[in-house]
Amino acid sequence: MTTTDTPPATAPAPSPGPKNKRTKRRREGAAWVFLSPWVLGASVLTLLPMAVSLYLSFTDYDMFNTPRWVGLRNYIQMFTEDPRYWRSVGATLTYVVIAVPLQLALALAVALALKSMKRGRGFYRSAFYAPSLLGASMSIALVWRAVFNDGGTVDNLLSDIGINTGGWVNQPGWALFAVALLTVWQFGAPMVIFLAGLQQIPTELYEAAAVDGAGRWRQFLSITVPMLSPVIFFNLVLQTIQAFQVFTPAFAVSAGKGGPADSTLFYTLYLYDRGFVASHMGYASAMAWVLLLALGAVTAVLFRTSRSWVFYAADTNDTQGGAR
């Protein structure tokens, strides 16, 4: 006589009663109470101004009279009738291409040096991070202008070795580089992120590569860069977005005019000039929305291309489960 084991019958899940529903509603209500300051702030301080700005971008508005609807005229003028707009785009793109790679390269180099340092790592990490704490303040930008101005520290040092520049901020070919160097100098934030990523790379990988005869450069290319690629990508996206919005250094170095010869007329500086100096707020709003769309497009391109060079470590449990 054979018997078959039958699985025990499982009781049906009890349906939620009125008490459970009331408890769920109370918890949801408490969650919304705690979220209400953020929701209110996001609505009043972000979403509402964005909606008003979008409306103003289709109007002729000088901040003193009632906005007058003009449709796409601001956008058409921007792209076809305003040569200074395109000069601001060119200056901003040049600045991003110069400042972002130099800042990230310097931040990574310093992070690598700090990682291998045995003594004084905390002191040097704080010292290198200190300029980033100052931020893009007007006082730092004015000091930077004085350093690179005619008769400033940099001009005197270069004059001592026979190079007469007449001050970087007064030369169309050098003013933008002076602003870019200020951004490069404040490399502390990406450096700390790089250092945190480097400390997560297993030392066993470097030991195995050294046994196989790989030198430092080969270890950097084959281990450090692939393992650090998510952190590099994060810093690249973050610093690129910030670089497109640079304002204070250019405003201080050029005294708010974007000179000389519009060489430091960055996009946000020209937006400020159109909106708050010339009182063309409708035109400035249109520029702001074009900048928002451009940043979205650049970020999307970075995310799209990251598939070919950013490598994420596979989850250990998933790997083991697949092996089984």
Rank of each mutant, 00 (worst) to 15 (best):
I241A: 13
L134V: 09
L47D: 14
L102F: 12
F251T: 00
T319E: 11
F220R: 09
K257V: 05
A127K: 04
Y75G: 06
I232S: 13
Q219G: 14
A189S: 11
A141K: 06
T319C: 01
D262F: 00
G258S: 05
G29L: 13
L48V: 14
V39H: 12
N20Y: 00
L221I: 10
N20T: 05
Y129A: 01
G151K: 03
G197S: 13
D212R: 07
L265F: 07
G71T: 06
D62C: 02
T316N: 12
P83E: 13
L112V: 11
W168I: 03
V100D: 13
S263K: 00
A314N: 03
L56R: 07
T264R: 05
S137C: 11
M191K: 12
I140H: 03
A113F: 12
Q186I: 01
T305Q: 15
R119D: 14
A214S: 11
V33M: 10
Q186T: 07
K19M: 10
A250S: 06
G296V: 06
V70W: 05
D212Y: 09
Q77R: 14
P14S: 14
A323R: 15
S139E: 12
V143F: 13
G197Q: 12
V52P: 02
D82H: 05
M138K: 03
A261S: 07
F128C: 13
Y206I: 02
Q239L: 03
T23W: 10
M191F: 14
V231G: 10
A178D: 06
V89Q: 04
I232W: 08
M50V: 15
V310M: 07
F276G: 06
A297S: 10
G259W: 00
I193H: 10
F234H: 06
V143W: 09
A113K: 02
A91D: 00
V192M: 14
A323M: 12
A196G: 13
R73P: 00
G296S: 06
L56T: 01
E204T: 10
Y283G: 07
G296D: 05
F244K: 01
G173P: 00
L142Y: 12
